[in-house]
């Protein structure tokens, strides 16, 4: 073993628990879009109002989940120097969107768990990532995060941590980032709702438009969005993670190197398909595919999915794929079948 590998293993040993950990430390996942219309002018379009209502339902789910922390990954907060974590305990500002400034200003004051952010940085570094906190008055929190926290956590009932999306990061780095955050959650014994701020298809209508005329930019975008939503309803988060590159090619304007949120989300929630998904809303917002979706850990796999129909956190040995009586839906076979 070379020194670098030895160092990495020693470092990871401090960061990752030796024993299998509770699979449900992240008890809820929420996907929300980051455009400001559901916050600032839902009344101008019935679909924007339905997205706003979806936020309200997701907020109720968060309250019922027992979460004591919101971890927000925003695709609208780009970083270059590794991964940045917001650590100003009470960021306060009046935000205006670069494109949709005419919709109005958004005053905000959030409650940030700075200690968790510090721990997340430690865990990220232990996994080889470059990471740091940012805690500066006036730091520009992105539109997506502002919208998400204003609608999901309007009274700051829960503290939040916000993590950036590195523009150069690809799959491995983003997956490791999700795992690092999970390390931090488990060390603090937190119960967390993971909030991903991202549209599905991201192609905006690039011309002035009456709100009533809003539509998904293309049929192709719409079909890919619906395929993703079908998977989300089945709870197949890890499968969607695996499809991210395809989705990036098919339904995303390539502003960055890759479509990263599902990599992060899957890694943070446990790299499994063991979820129960609910699509609360799917509507166009200025051409984009904007959905509010929740994922909750499912008690039992349906057994017909991919490699991870078993527990992905603790290996229980080889699975005899021909022993159909092991499949949940088959029940047990009568005895005396030794022959």
């Amino acid at each position: 073993m070379n020194a670098a590998v030895a160092g990495k293993e020693a470092s990871l040993g401090e960061a990752v628990a030796d024993e299998p950990t509770a699979a449900n430390s992240v008890t809820l996942g929420i996907l929300v879009p980051g455009l400001p219309h559901p916050l600032l002018c839902p009344e101008k379009n019935e679909g924007w109002q339905r997205v706003r209502d979806g936020f309200a339902t997701a907020r109720e789910q968060i309250a019922a989940s027992g979460a004591d922390l919101l971890v927000v990954y925003s695709t609208m907060w780009p970083s270059i120097l590794g991964h940045q974590f917001q650590a100003n305990p009470t960021p306060e500002w009046t935000h205006v969107d670069d494109d949709f400034h005419y919709l109005g200003s958004i005053p905000y004051k959030f409650r940030i768990d700075a200690k968790f952010a510090e721990l997340a940085v430690t865990k990220a570094k232990a996994r080889g990532l470059h990471a740091r906190t940012v805690a500066y008055h006036g730091f520009p929190i992105d539109t997506g995060t502002v919208v998400a926290l204003k609608l999901l956590n309007p009274d700051n009932e829960l503290p939040a941590t916000i993590v950036s999306s590195n523009i150069y990061a690809n799959r491995t780095e983003t997956t490791v980032l999700g795992k690092a955050l999970r390390d931090a959650v488990e060390e603090q014994g937190r119960t967390v709702a993971a909030v991903v701020v991202s549209t599905l298809s991201n192609r905006l209508v690039t011309e002035p438009m009456e709100p009533a005329d809003d539509h998904i930019h293309s049929l192709k975008d719409d079909e890919w969005n619906r395929k993703f939503l079908e998977y989300l309803e089945k709870g197949r988060l890890e499968d969607l993670s695996q499809l991210s590159r395809q989705f990036h090619d098919e339904a995303r304007v390539p502003k960055v190197v890759a479509f990263k949120p599902f990599w992060w989300w899957a890694a943070f929630m446990g790299q499994a398909n063991l979820y129960s998904g609910t699509v609360h809303a799917y509507e166009p917002i200025w051409g984009t595919g904007s959905a509010v979706v929740s994922l909750e850990p499912a008690g039992e796999s349906t057994g017909d999915l991919e490699y991870d129909e078993d527990d992905p956190e603790f290996y229980s040995g080889d699975r005899e794929v021909l022993d159909l009586h092991d499949a949940p839906s088959m029940g047990s076979l009568p005895g005396g079948n030794e022959d």
Binding site: L81, D98, H101, G138, F139, P140, D142, E207
Partner: peptide, 26 residues
């Protein structure tokens, strides 16, 4: 100042505030 719906122009005569770089806030 990145815009996707057309090109935009400042239309207010005076601005006074704090600018913090999102990439290099340090």
């Amino acid at each position: 100042w990145q815009t996707y719906v057309g090109t935009h122009f400042l239309g207010v005569p005076h601005f006074k505030n704090l600018s913090v770089d999102p990439i290099f806030p340090n």
